[in-house]
Design a protein around this nucleic acid. Structure first.
Lengths: 250, 250
DNA sequence: ACCGATCTGTACGGTAGCGCACATAGCAGG
DNA sequence: CCTGCTATGTGCGCTACCGTACAGATCGGT
């Protein structure tokens, strides 16, 4: 995006890309590329974390887990963000579960190194705090969405969120896992997905969803998707996830 | 709490109290005490805010509002916190509604002054980021709670959260307002409150709730209350809201 | 003491989503 | 090709909560 040459680019993390050159080159040697498989648990509730992740092609889900085993996704992180905000906010851990929602690549980085660069107070500091604010907004909107919107609407939201963070229109994901994310029964997802399939918006085949009609999804999704997206744009212009398929504020 | 003398203390904001003396005295001249009435709207969704608030005896609610008018509280701030984290995170606004849930006193402070002190990178910086993390946790837990717990449980949680931030056991609050906070029907609150009253835990009288049996509430509340509280303690020991009535991690 | 406004209690049909049970359908490996 | 595993579809009774309507209770003001 800010590459002056027409060179073929490796998949990038837009948060890293948005950094000025000197910071980028300072961090570059410490970024370890890593492949993460679907379903891998990055960390369990409350476990110490000593590194952060910058996803490029992978998508990471932040889940909260209740004592009875019920779960709900509170945020999702793709190539627009960072996993492990607790690191620079000074908490070291978060009481949630973090799992890989879509297999792919991430950059791993030592938490203390990030902390160090963060404490310089430069552009990284600035960007990460703005990202945190966007994340807070995403969580809050998720809370309201959980309360007031139907499974159908939330499934659309979830599909769009995932689509934004992928380069294909095909996601590898069982209904069971989606149910965990949305905090509902698997059967509820089956039913909602059935409706979308009947409407010709998606095709479902045993752990593989193909989105056929993105505008159709956008027409059915609740406002929450757009609210989060707009706030993200406002705070981090240029650092926007996904393929910008033309959804705009009305 | 950290007062060596037995002198009578003014109501305090514990976040401010936790600051080292030099920072405190630097900020002190800029803290404007203010009375805020029940129901007052601090700011509407997305409105510019040019100051922050440190509640002392007041309680402030952060609500998200949907297009159809439905609402839900995503966080509550009392004498343990600050209203306006967007200020130092670099966003200036948040797309939510902020209202006074319990009348009382706050300290108002210019946002740019706070920003200035925040940018010094000292203890204020450190504390506010930790507070932000605790807040993030509160929001996330609220999201899961919204999804999985009953109105009864959530009402208990809400009462305890309020109680923690008050010096009395009496809250001035209509069922209508509580319903807005919890994102449910007023009648749902009536019913849940009726059960608590029948059990002798509270007494309800036209916009005034007296808590008679706090341990009883604690026995009925969902885990979410304690999770948020514990995480708060972990991150900000000493900066804990309320009267420490002895609830501990089991 | 009265009135009007607000707040609270109650009732009732409707429904979204749950818990459970089970039937089917793809896929993988011997 | 058969077997077993995992993923998906479907049905059914149940419950929490909603939307609506309305009746009583309590309070403040004149």
């Amino acid at each position: 995006m800010n590459s002056p040459t027409g060179a073929i680019k490796k998949p990038a993390n837009y948060l890293l890309e948005a950094l000025p050159g000197d910071v980028k080159s300072r961090l570059a040697p410490h970024l370890i590329p890593l492949s993460v498989p679907l379903g891998m648990s990055i960390c369990e509730s409350g476990l110490q974390m000593d590194h952060v992740l910058f996803p490029t092609t992978a998508i990471i889900s932040l889940l909260y887990v209740l004592e009875n085993g019920s779960t709900a996704e509170v945020a999702v992180v793709g190539n627009e963000g960072i996993v492990g905000i607790a690191m620079f906010l000074g908490g070291a851990t978060m009481p949630n579960r973090t799992i890989v929602q879509s297999a792919g690549e991430v950059y791993q980085m030592s938490g203390s190194l990030l902390q160090e660069e963060f404490n310089r107070g430069g552009e990284l500091h600035h960007l990460l705090l703005k990202y945190t604010l966007a994340m807070v907004n995403q969580m809050a909107q998720t809370a309201v969405c959980n309360r007031h919107h139907t499974i159908d609407q939330q499934l659309c939201r979830w599909l769009l969120l995932s689509l934004d963070r992928l380069s294909t229109n095909e996601l590898v994901m069982t209904q069971e896992l989606i149910a965990d994310m949305l905090g509902v029964r698997r059967e509820g997802v089956t039913e909602a997905a059935g409706k979308l399939q009947a409407a010709g918006l998606i095709r479902y085949q045993r752990g593989r969803i193909t989105v056929l009609d993105r505008p159709g999804l956008e027409a059915r999704v609740c406002e929450c998707y757009e609210v989060v997206r707009n706030e993200f744009q406002r705070l981090l212009p240029g650092v926007i996830a996904g393929s910008d398929s033309g959804m705009r504020p009305k």
